[in-house]
Amino acid sequence: MRISGVNFLVKRGISNIKHNRVMSLASFCVLTVSMLLIGFTFLFLLNLNMMIGDVEAQNEVIDFLEDNLTDTQTEMIGQSISSVQNVASVTFYSKEQGFAEIRGRIPNSEELFDYIGDDSPLPDSYRVKIHDLSEISPALMAINRIEGVYQVQAPTDFIGILTSLRGAFTVIAAAVLAALLIVCIIVVSNTARASVDMRKREITIMKLVGATNEFIRIPFFIEGLTMGLISGGFSAAITYISYNAVNNLLSHSDTTLFTALGVGGLIPPGTIALPYIAATIGGGALISAIVTGLSTHKYLKV
């Protein structure tokens, strides 16, 4: 096709938006609301997933060491633990550090600690963080086998709950997003079909004077693409502004919700802005263009 032909089809697609103002406005509203719904749900699920990750990251395995180990032996044990598969980090805690930590955690218990005295009853320990909590058991068994490790303490029940929670969350999040996407595609598709339906006479005339299906469909595709770009950009802007406002509100409180939950906070808006905006505009444009283009199908059988 000649450049002048392509130029005509693009101009025709864009001018269709102007000529069909009412349906264009309806399509814009439906697309924007759909994208906002998907966008907000996606960001909520993304942050929830990250928060579960934060809670997971705080869980440590404590490896108590046997008494009377030399510094060299203690260091060797630390290296052995580091070399175990799935171990993320290893931090040494002396018996004094461990005892001070317990004292700090139990307030108003001076009498109890006076009775125990200043000497720590706890052994030296290593605090170990695990990469993948769902695969913690083999790591625990390997650490247990290291000579000089007296006992391994791990919150396996809690880790089990977290692992199940993350698994269930992944399935639910995927299902919710898939359902939303399907609903949005159906709604957008119906709006596009209604818009095309109003122009079935025009399509029939075009067919009768010798236009090919592609020649008729391309302006509809361009129209859908343009509507998708505009709606995608608009919904991305609204989502970004709202997300930024929520993030500022929650992170500038004196006692933040995140501190109470023991999580780091929302994903910073700057980190997700570019991919999110690109995905919203691109996704919106693509869905709208394909759905609008396909809606012409039944009228092309002339």
């Binding site: 005509f8 000529h19 075009m206 020649f215």
Partner: peptide
């Protein structure tokens, strides 16, 4: 075609 001018209606056949 209602949304096209006289010129565009006539030219459309050639554009096809």
């Amino acid at each position: 075609i209602d949304s096209m001018t006289v010129y565009e209606n006539v030219a459309f056949v050639l554009r096809c």
